[in-house]
Design a protein around this nucleic acid. Structure first.
Length: 544
RNA sequence: GGCCCGUUGGUGAAGCGGUCUAACACAUAGCCCUCUCAAGGCUACAUACAAGGGUUCAAAUCCCUUACGGGUCACCA
């Protein structure tokens, strides 16, 4: 019996060779970097995944390369129904659109299939080859045996794992292995490592720099027993080689396994891609840092930002600020450029865990929303409300123009108002503008005397109000009104001699403001008066 | 526990041997502006380079030790 016989026994229907497959995946005709986002379909778009996808996308766009999406569905137990749709939706929503992908039957790109479970035959060709050349072998150890091994190793205080003298099935003769498989015994295929743990190798990570790592000596499982699908380690090596990925962006949790991957690339004579191991996104709780958790932290799920109504650009920008520390500076200097023009630098990636700051998001978001014009804000907020906020949706729907006028207060100007951080803020910011929701507890300030209040608003409406006044005229009239009623027309005079006046122009403005809105703090009064018009002003004054 | 990575102010961070009495941004506080708020401008945040040893004329920057934090040790990715 030879290794070839064994390989044929395990893969009787595989007739293609490694060379055959290689021909199907010729060198790409692009000069730029080829990156990929390769999530496992767990039904969840993690913020860390989005961080990586943005990085991949940026690198590809920067260099005129390719960014593709690959579905890593080799773990059938964990797979969720709509997982691919969830990922695609988020990617599309945030405009991180892959150049190549496979979705709902459509295959875009020549390097597919882009779904690992559809690539089974390809993996088998490579595994078969590995068995033939003696770099892979069947292992019959059961999970129980493996855990006994682990306990034994722990007891001996040696490294755990299937390596060296502990890799029992490595010593089984070809003939025995052949017979056991023939008898229907369950097995996995393991990679036969030639590494020596005592040997250190230098590995250069694009983000983390030079790292001194021990060679791999573990005989990792490369093909599982039940469905004959590859494990991540093997699929990564084959796919990223065949699809010609030049830069692999993945989480830091993969760092300890790079030596495995490097050895496998080497076993095939493939060039390994470059790697960027991204820091984990962390969260602070009770003063302690920990990995952001999808169970405890709603913001770990990209859906959260949609639900809260943060503009998509704000979310991407906020992630960009932790992807590259100099991003904010670039953005300040290039306020209107698309983010793809920002030149990504792997060395500027944080080497320790990045803490995602919701306050920062709010700030970025306020700026972005403040720069929208009223039509854009209307579109965005209405679309959002239709999905997430019935009350707001109704308000908008009832009178679109009125809504646009409200959100246009202090908008579309050089220094626009910045009070909306997310669409879910809007309702509470504007509800009192609607008569049916206007049920105020008047927040009177200095002037609380009803007679005086009535006097002020009556004098104002009867003697001063004119809808056509421009802002200066309007304010001058308020000053006049103040003066006539015994209040200081300007603050400086008042501050000099407060005793000479009943109060000042601010008190008068406050009375009008509170009468109209119930609130002591509102956007610009002049704008509100204009928005309301004489009828609404009268009816609100009459309410007092 | 073994191996690997990291540690600059409340937060994200710049810095890569001298220009560091340590940038910038967010947060917080105060002042200014002002009809209120949101902004905007200015200022502050008291001893921010984890600790201790080296190397060097010179260290946040290089080396070692310790402490702390993180990652990883699956037929999960």
């Amino acid at each position: 019996m030879t290794t070839k016989d064994l390989a044929n026994l395990i893969f009787p229907n595989i007739t293609k060779t490694v060379e055959d497959i290689e021909k199907m995946y010729p060198k790409r005709e692009v000069d730029g970097e080829v990156t990929r986002f390769a999530p496992s379909p767990t039904g969840f778009m993690h913020i860390g995944g989005c961080y990586q996808a943005i990085t991949d996308y940026l690198i590809a766009k920067n260099t005129n390369g390719i960014f593709y999406l690959r579905n890593e569905d080799t773990d059938k137990a964990r797979e969720k129904e709509d997982a691919v749709k969830i990922i695609m939706d988020i990617l599309n929503y945030y405009n991180i659109v892959p150049d190549e992908y496979e979705y709902e039957g459509d295959v875009v790109g020549k390097y597919g299939p882009y779904i690992q479970s559809e690539r089974k035959e390809i993996y088998h060709v490579f595994i078969k080859h590995l068995i033939e050349i003696g770099r892979a072998y069947p292992c019959f150890c059961t999970p129980d045996e493996l855990s006994v091994l682990r306990e034994k190793q722990e007891g001996m205080k040696v490294r755990t794992g299937y390596y060296g003298r502990f890799s029992k099935c490595r010593k089984i003769s070809i003939d025995d292995a052949y017979d056991r498989i023939k008898n229907g015994e369950k097995f996995v295929i393991r990679f036969k490592s030639k590494g020596d743990f005592e040997n250190k190798i230098w590995y250069e990570d694009l983000a983390k720099g030079r790292l001194h790592l021990s060679e791999n000596d573990i005989d990792d499982v490369i093909m599982k027993s039940d469905n004959m699908l590859p494990t991540y380690h093997f699929a990564h090596v084959i796919d990223d080689h065949l699809m010609h990925t030049t830069i692999v962006v993945r989480g830091e949790e993969w760092l300890p396994s790079v030596t495995k991957h490097l050895e496998m690339f080497n076993a095939f004579g493939f060039d390994a891609p470059k790697y960027i191991h991204t820091p984990l996104i962390q969260k602070k709780e009770d003063g302690k840092l920990r990995k952001i958790s999808k169970r405890k932290d709603p913001e770990a799920n990209m859906e959260y930002f949609k639900e809260m109504g943060y503009p998509k650009d704000a979310v991407v920008e906020s992630l960009l600020t932790i992807i590259n520390s100099n991003y904010e500076e670039w953005r300040d200097n290039n306020p209107d450029a698309p983010f793809t023009e920002f030149k990504f630098d792997a060395k500027k990636m944080s080497s320790s865990g990045a803490l995602y700051d919701l306050m920062k998001l709010e700030d970025i978001s306020k700026n972005i929303i403040s720069r929208m014009n009223k039509d854009e804000l209307y579109e965005e907020s209405y679309t959002w409300a239709c999905k997430y906020d019935e009350k707001l949706k109704e308000l908008i729907y009832k009178d679109v123009d009125y809504y646009k006028n409200i959100i246009n207060i202090e908008r579309e100007q050089a220094k626009p108002r910045k009070d909306i951080a997310k669409y879910s803020d809007i309702y509470n910011l504007i509800y009192y503008m609607y008569d049916e929701l206007f049920n105020p507890e008047y927040e009177w300030m200095k002037i609380t005397d009803t007679t005086e209040i009535k006097n002020i608003i009556n004098t104002y409406i009867n003697e001063y109000y004119d809808r056509d006044d421009d802002k200066d005229t309007w304010f001058n009239k308020i000053k006049e009104l103040a003066e006539n009623l015994g209040y200081a027309a300007n603050m400086k005079d008042y501050k000099k001699n407060p005793d000479n006046y009943k109060g000042n122009v601010a008190d008068i403005a406050t009375v009008i403001r509170v009468s109209l809105t119930g609130k002591k703090n509102t956007p610009d009064l002049y704008e509100i008066l204009k928005l309301f018009g004489i009828d609404r002003i009268r009816s609100r004054f009459n309410k007092i």
